[in-house]
Design a protein around this nucleic acid. Structure first.
Length: 275
DNA sequence: ACGGGATATCAACAGATGAC
DNA sequence: GTCATCTGTTGATATCCCGT
């Protein structure tokens, strides 16, 4: 996809602005070389004993939770729900694929979900209070079960992708699994790059290209539109990759975050920048 | 204060539209 | 006609709103 000189200028300004204000953005962790360190590196949450909640993706259970996070985040609702769901599973020892493989377990988790949401709220210390009451969607649990049934295959595809240095193998496979979307037959798409982004950020797989790591969700697309950056509608895997590639060309190792944060930067910049 | 219906929100999907 | 892109619909659920 074509990147114009004007788009490069817009991106440059946005990145400058983003870096200047990144400390005020609760969801942003930035490293010494102005690179994004990843979302799961630090959720800005602590358990009752004051220990930070985060995912170490070198551990298989935490890797499983990264996928759960993505499933939760791909649902409607405040993003806090996804983070709290992952924290609930981690703190309460429900972070193993084998647990979710059992049909009786995932069905009982559905029934428990209201209590679980209240439980985790009482178990955590928040640096920033969630905006709404924590709640867990029913359909997310079925998807976690499906994830568990495909877990070995998913790991296998990741390994093959690593060996061949082609992570579209993994993406294509994940996209093909039915039941990871909110309906039993639906599939996941938009948030697939997030998985690769977090793995790249933690350097678990060292040959993941940044071009496959930018999320283009509604918020990112909206920001691009109001800034005058042209992105295709990521309605299938090839569009998604095209979109992610262009964002990476513009933003580098900050990925989609400057665009994601655009709203929160309270920008006066769009007026000057576009014509 | 409480329950039920309407509304807003989002991503995925499928059908419609447009370009060649 | 084929392929890619655009648009409208679908479905779950939290929140809002109103009557009781």
């Amino acid at each position: 996809m074509f990147v114009s000189i004007e788009e490069k200028k817009i991106a440059h300004r946005l990145v400058e602005n983003f870096l200047k204000h990144s400390e005020k953005l609760p969801y942003v962790n930035i490293g010494k070389n102005n690179e994004y360190l990843g979302w799961v590196k630090d959720f800005n949450l602590r358990d009752s004993e004051g220990r930070k909640i985060f995912l170490d993706l070198a551990k298989e259970d935490d890797l499983f939770l990264l996928f759960v996070l993505v499933l939760g985040w791909s649902r409607t609702g405040p993003w806090e729900n996804a983070v709290n769901l992952v924290s609930y599973l981690k703190i309460n020892g429900k972070d193993k694929p084998s647990y979710w493989l059992e049909e009786s377990n995932y069905l009982s988790e559905i029934n428990l979900r209201q209590q679980s949401a209240e439980l985790i709220y009482s178990q955590l210390q928040y640096e920033i209070e969630p905006r709404y009451k924590i709640s867990f969607r029913k359909d997310t649990f079925r998807s976690i079960h499906v994830l568990a049934t495909k877990w070995d295959a998913i790991i296998n595809k990741l390994e093959i992708s690593k060996l061949r240095s082609d992570y579209t193998i993994f993406m294509t496979y994940l996209r093909s699994v039915r039941g990871l979307g909110k309906l039993p037959n639906e599939k996941i798409l938009k948030k697939i790059p997030l998985i690769l982004r977090e793995l790249r950020c933690q350097r678990i797989f060292k040959n993941i290209p940044g071009e496959l790591c930018c999320v283009a969700d509604r918020r990112v697309l909206g920001a691009a539109q109001s800034l005058g950056i042209q992105l295709v509608n990521p309605s299938n895997l090839s569009n998604l990759i095209e979109c992610s590639t262009k964002i990476y060309k513009l933003m580098g190792d900050l990925y989609d975050l400057p665009l994601f944060a655009y709203k929160d930067l309270g920008l006066k910049m769009s007026g000057h920048l576009i014509r």
